[in-house]
């Protein structure tokens, strides 16, 4: 006869938990389009993930947007995984916005929905780092060195770290957190009045075409250079934008992702990670117009 004391339930539970942590996970990797750079990034990520786990790669370009019947089927295939890994700015933005109820580890996020970042299921490696932004701000701010930050609650961890790094470099930081669209104008007015360089968080609320266009035009009118999250904002008036190399980011993301999978795809204290090297792209026309001198060798890519 099988006998079992309740205290042994704890052992059983622990074993089951261990089994869950060791089990093979289904991982959906989402990319915008498979090109040479993406292929390199994929190889590095797959090498980190594939041992013991089942990986499937999805191309956003193959999703039939505009046909909700087929689009839903394809999205359901992506969402069926235990973990979704969007790779690159566009894929990260798309997955974080549309599949926020899933566990997500993004690689190379630039602009994402800040509201979704508040979810404990979502984390990953950004394409930029607070340290890099702080060094860039120090270089372009001039005197007085006043950095203005505008961000949403989802970007608070990044903004706080950026503040700290900037203060360590001798910059004065003025920051404003906001949640709604109608807070953008008063927040921008308040921060821009005190800033010599302006950083706009990569939240879709702030870095969407309309909102960013307004922020950049206000800043430019006041002669303040704007630092923005994605290269698509360069044409919208950004002075300097994040322009990271996807294979490099994949190299940095691979060990983090591997550890994350070994930990039973549970985020610990830190959900957000930042690359050790950050690449920026500068609007040189704007630089000469605003008479901002950059260190030598900043063209075409600036690593602050």
């Amino acid at each position: 006869m099988f006998r079992f004391h309740p205290s042994k339930l704890c052992v059983t539970a622990a074993l089951i938990t261990l089994a869950a942590q060791c089990r093979a996970y289904e991982v959906s990797i989402v990319v915008n389009r498979v090109d040479a750079k993406t292929r390199q990034a994929l190889q590095r990520l797959e090498a980190a993930v594939s041992s013991g786990h089942h990986v499937e790669v999805f191309e956003m370009a193959a999703i039939p947007f505009g046909n909700p019947k087929e689009e839903g089927r394809r999205m359901a295939q992506i969402a069926a995984a235990d973990l979704i890994v969007p790779v690159g700015g566009e894929a990260s933005r798309f997955v974080v916005e549309t599949l926020a109820q899933n566990k997500i580890f993004f690689v190379g996020a630039t602009i994402v929905n800040g509201g979704s970042l508040e979810s404990k299921r979502i984390g990953g490696l950004f394409a930029y780092s607070p340290e890099g932004w702080a060094r860039a701000a120090k270089t372009i701010s001039g005197e007085p060195s006043n950095l203005g930050l505008i961000y949403t609650p989802g970007f608070r961890p990044l903004a706080e770290r950026l503040s700290l790094n900037s203060q360590n470099l001798g910059l004065k930081v003025f920051r404003q957190e906001l949640r709604r669209k109608n807070e953008i104008v008063p927040a921008a007015m308040k921060i821009l009045a005190q800033s010599s360089v302006f950083w706009v968080a990569g939240d879709t609320l702030l870095s969407g075409q309309l909102a960013f266009g307004y922020l950049a035009s206000q800043a430019l009118e006041m002669g303040i250079p704007v630092m923005a999250a994605d290269r698509s904002l360069l044409s919208g008036g950004a002075f300097v934008v994040s322009d990271s190399d996807l294979p490099e980011l994949a190299d940095e993301a691979a060990p983090i992702l591997s550890a994350f999978l070994s930990n039973g795809i549970n985020y610990g204290e830190d959900r957000f990670f930042y690359p050790s090297k950050m690449r920026l792209k500068v609007n040189h026309k704007l630089a000469s117009k605003m008479k901002i001198e950059l260190p030598k060798g900043t063209s075409p890519v600036w690593i602050p």
């Binding site: 089951i16 909700p68 359901a76 969402a79 069926a80 235990d82 599949l99």
Partner: peptide
């Protein structure tokens, strides 16, 4: 026990709505 250990249903599996 099998369900817990083997995780037959992926944790993240969700219903996707479009329209």
């Amino acid at each position: 026990a099998f369900w817990s250990a083997a995780g037959s249903a992926p944790a993240g599996a969700t219903v996707v709505f479009t329209g």
